[in-house]
Amino acid sequence: MERIPILRMGRVLLVTIQVDMHDQLAVTLQDDLTAKIVETGAGGVLIDISSLEVVDSFIGRILGNIATMSRVLDAQTVVVGMQPAVAITLVELGMSLPGIRTALNVEKGMTLLQASMDADEVVLEVADASLED
């Protein structure tokens, strides 16, 4: 079966969508990613959509689902590389992708993910310390 590959880089799962996804492929990606987060204990998911020429409401909804599901599984999602024409179209379509964090490119997305994963750890350490007190 056709699948979109998920790469692991440290605590981050990296997905690059390079094909015009048909609906089932997008649903499979959503299922694979959630399974992979649990399996690897990943703290972040980076989705590169710079090759995607169309994001319709279905794909938008899948991206939103992935962000929500990974948050529930204690991982953060950042979507990077959206083409300007896609951004314009999404907003006119009525989808502003609430709840999805975005960055301009993979590098900035990685920085954002790393910073928020570090921040999470600090919060955990503080919580642990106050428990010990």
Partner: peptide, 16 residues
């Protein structure tokens, strides 16, 4: 490019 993307996206919604 923006016009193309809008038309393709509209087509995708309606075809679905």
């Amino acid at each position: 490019l923006v016009e193309q993307t809008k038309m393709v996206t509209a087509a995708s919604e309606l075809a679905r």
